[in-house]
Amino acid sequence: MEEKIVGEGVKFERIRRITGYLVGTLDRFNDAKYAEVNDRVKHQVSTGTGAGVFEKV
């Protein structure tokens, strides 16, 4: 019996927040915002420090 394949061509959805609004697919971002999303780096949340406690800058 031949194996049936499903889901071909179905893309993952990637929800991102752009200037306050959620957008369901990166295709709808304009070029500048697409670049901005790609450039984002994560902000480390130092563990072990309680709320409002952080290293001196």
């Binding site: 984002r40 780096v41 902000h43 480390q44 420090t49 406690v53 952080f54 290293e55």
Partner: peptide, 8 residues
């Protein structure tokens, strides 16, 4: 957004 910095 590209600048590495801690959340706090």
């Amino acid at each position: 957004v590209y600048y590495p910095i801690s959340a706090f």
